[in-house]
């Protein structure tokens, strides 16, 4: 017999369910007075450095209907490409930027919105630069384990073409599913869970 590795198994995921808002965004679903504000609603303040942008979009199911009960979280670097995290060893991120946001899709039209800044570039493991991106995580009723994807920026043509993750996508037409569309300072990032134009999701 060899030694036991002794590792534990990860707690298995379960769906967030239709009432995820009670726990993650209680004020959004009119449970007021327990928490002052829902977590993750304010990523920026007056002093945050960088280019202000709005990230918005909807999540669609396999029948093309928008998902009314999803919660999205995003995580991104600041405008200089630094993460506001203790595991960030390259420098100190902008203290006026959390890097993390949480938003529920609206029941009436399925829209989510984040007010944030455009992230700077961060390195891949081998030192190559990744194109500016926002990491996105989606939970909802019917989703058994949270889905990870990334949003990239349409004007970053050169950086996107050299991005180590985008280069890994075998079916090249699918790269477009990770790139937002832009109008002024607003980026629209629609997510398709299934079927035509299905968004690339990550095991990462």
């Amino acid at each position: 017999m060899v030694q036991e590795l002794g590792y534990l198994k990860e707690t298995p995921s379960q769906t967030a369910g239709p009432y995820v808002h009670i726990g993650l965004t209680p004020n959004f679903c009119d449970i007021n007075g327990v928490y002052e504000a829902d977590l993750g609603t304010a990523m920026v303040n007056d002093k945050t450095l960088g280019e202000r942008i709005t990230v918005t979009g909807r999540v669609f199911d396999g029948a093309g209907a928008f998902v009314r009960d999803a919660v999205l979280e995003i995580w991104q670097a600041d405008s200089a490409g630094l993460y506001n995290s203790p595991s960030e060893m390259r420098g100190t991120a902008d203290p006026n930027f959390t890097g993390w946001g949480r938003c529920a899709t609206r029941a009436e039209d399925g829209v989510f919105t984040f007010e944030t800044v455009k992230p700077g570039q961060v390195p891949f493991k081998d030192g190559r630069k990744m194109a500016p991106h926002i990491t996105v995580w989606i939970v909802a009723r019917g989703i058994n384990i949270g889905l990870h994807t990334r949003m990239y920026f349409p004007e970053e043509t050169e950086a996107n073409a050299a991005d180590p993750l985008l280069l890994r996508i075998e079916h090249r037409e699918r790269v477009a599913t990770m790139i937002a569309s832009r109008e002024g300072s607003t980026y629209t990032f629609d997510i398709r869970l299934q079927g035509d134009g299905e968004t690339v999701f990550l095991d990462i």
Binding site: G62, A65, R150, L193, E198
Partner: peptide, 29 residues
């Protein structure tokens, strides 16, 4: 058996990648 998962499950394989700094890091509360 969990009906809502039928239309909310991706059909394409996930793209696997060893974690980068974008996933290794996270906020502190």
């Amino acid at each position: 058996g969990y009906k809502t998962s039928v239309l909310r499950s991706p059909q394409r394989a996930l793209l696997s990648l060893d974690g980068t700094i974008s996933e290794i890091t996270g906020p502190v509360f």
